[in-house]
Amino acid sequence: MALSTEESGRLAALLSGQDERVTTRWTEIVTSSLRGRLSQAELRRQVQDLHRAIITTGEQGTIDLSAESAGELRAALSELSRGRARQGFSATETTVSIFALKDVLAELVQETGGPNALQDFVAFSKLVDEMGLFTFESFVRTRESLIADQAEQLLELSTPVVKLWEGVVAVPLVGTLDSARAQVVMERLLQTLVDTSSPYAIIDITGVPAVDTQVAQHILKTVVAARLMGADCIISGIRPQIAQTIVALGIEFGDIATKASLADALRHVLRLNGVETARRQPRRDA
């Protein structure tokens, strides 16, 4: 699919011969397709980068997009597609920047004419197609990594650890808990205990529709880990179905405190702390 040395040379000559005109026309076509969502100046700079990259590659000999010599061209293409993907442009709006070169080349070849005109144009077109595909692929890769990043951010967002009272933090868990999320939640909970110096944590699972063995294990391990660190966990809001699952799965909750609601759990902690029973000295050996 590579261009021969002669074709590459002719392409480079064609593009560099009228470079001002090529880039202006190219920018024009791209601008109209993007309907003013990127500034003319920025588009022009991108087009000039690509233009220069094609010429440098072409002057070195054959243009083969997968070869070592096309490194600069590939870099220019990926930078363009990465930028577009980040700014939220569609795949079409991205690749059109490359395919616009075809129109420019068609006009140029028509003007210059010559015996090889048709043959050249077919070869140039193929190269542009290849560049388009490459751009599309790197566009998709960028989008995928963006989605992965967002999923991670969502994971962070969906697991708030809140301070309920002096020395008491809570995690209200909402939605399905898979193993990965359970792990993130638990690590954050433990870190918050340290950061806020809170000896009590309430894990509220009112909003959790189902619990499987793995998730229950995660919760249990967190409770044990919190104890090792010198804090106590209370689990609140266990739904009837979940209680049945826990018993059916044979999971031992042992001596872990469970309360019906978040309010009950908080009351329990405050009592342990001697807030309600103010007559007694606060004892923390519970």
């Binding site: 340290v194 090792l228 010198g230």
Partner: peptide, 15 residues
Amino acid sequence: VVVGMRPAVAITLVE
């Protein structure tokens, strides 16, 4: 009294 155990250390000890 042992104080200041890091979360990652506690998780590892449990495992």
